[in-house]
């Protein structure tokens, strides 16, 4: 655990220095950090707990909309609306899980698509709630301590804090009782139950935490875009990208989802600027290559090799 915390400290130190070193590459870094945070939050449920959700964009959209509507309609500062979004996301996660956790494996995943798509239609069609299909602008934001929240530097630090808090949460949970419960349920719900763990309660807690954390990142994303439309914020594609990031990086590992964000967002940006309209094709090929040659995800594969080496050493001595 200390090892991971030191790693997080190093990441934070590097992050704090980043805007001074690369002042003109902040947007892409913000994307990496937001995806790192989202994928790590997703992984609490999808990786550590084994419940693969393909509906997490709902929580991103929820957070972004709380911030945008709160600011433009009620003049509420984003920190209040993000807290409200997190609470609301947890409640939504509770009911969502209550509805669908009787399903297992791919059936659970499919049900999350259905719920998320229904929420997307609600966000598009209910004008009174979201402002409807034409979207919402964030025109003004408060300036805490004179900080302009519209500046990319401020947004970078928000995204950095978000990613760090999520990763820290996972580090703590990985060593806590709750973390063992999560994994026990993932491996075998029936044996977990026999060991006195309530699988449904465990899954619900994981879903609520995952949803709440994701929505906070969504709030930051709303501020970064400053103009949001429901199609984009609640898109199935975004849900899939979040899951993809975590799985490519390595599910159920502390650093996997963050590594996935770095690789996927970074590669996506590199392909975009070099391959013009072929870039998504090459991105697809990259995904296939990772799946075929690194099936456990980037960090998952590294960890496996590391463990193998340890065993090999022990066997020798």
């Amino acid at each position: 655990m200390t090892k991971h915390l030191i790693g997080l400290g190093l990441l934070l130190a590097a992050g704090i220095a980043y805007p001074a070193i690369f002042p003109n590459n902040l947007t892409i870094a913000i994307s990496v950090l937001l995806f790192a945070g989202w994928a790590t939050s997703w992984d609490l449920l999808g990786g550590w707990n084994g419940q693969v959700s393909l509906g997490h964009a709902s929580f991103v959209g929820l957070g972004a909309y709380f911030v945008a509507i709160g600011q433009s309609q009620f003049g509420l500062a984003p920190w209040w609306t993000m807290a409200m979004a997190a609470a609301f996301a947890a409640i939504l996660g509770y009911f969502w899980g209550w509805l669908t956790f009787s399903l297992r494996g791919p059936y659970f995943s499919l049900s999350t698509i259905a719920v998320a798509e229904i929420l997307r239609l609600v966000a598009i069609n209910e004008d009174w709630l979201t402002g409807g299909a034409t979207g919402v602008f964030i025109a003004t934001l408060p300036e805490p301590f004179g900080i302009d929240l519209f500046s990319r530097t401020a947004q970078f630090y928000m995204a950095l804090a978000f990613a760090a808090v999520v990763i820290a949460t996972v580090i703590v949970i990985s060593r806590a009782r709750f973390g063992f419960q999560l994994r026990a349920v993932r491996e075998d719900e029936d044996s977990a139950m026999a060991a006195g763990i309530d699988p449904t309660a465990t899954k619900l807690k994981a879903f609520m935490l995952s949803a709440a954390l994701t929505s906070i990142g969504g709030g930051i994303y709303g501020i970064v875009l400053a103009f949001i439309e429901p199609h984009v914020m609640f898109a199935l594609l975004l849900s899939v990208q979040i899951a993809l990031t975590a799985i490519i990086g390595g599910r159920g590992t502390i650093w996997g989802p963050a590594a996935g964000a770095l690789v996927l967002v970074g590669a996506g940006e590199m392909f975009r600027t070099t391959f013009a309209e072929a870039n998504m094709l090459i991105y697809g090929i990259l995904i296939l290559v990772v799946v075929l040659f690194v099936p456990r995800g980037i960090v998952g594969e590294l960890a496996r090799r590391h463990i193998r080496r340890l065993y090999a050493k022990r066997a020798q001595s």
Partner: peptide, 13 residues
């Protein structure tokens, strides 16, 4: 890529 975050990265550059 028909998405806002890539457009914003391009705009920044």
């Amino acid at each position: 890529r028909s998405e806002a975050k890539s457009a914003l990265a391009a705009a920044e550059s």
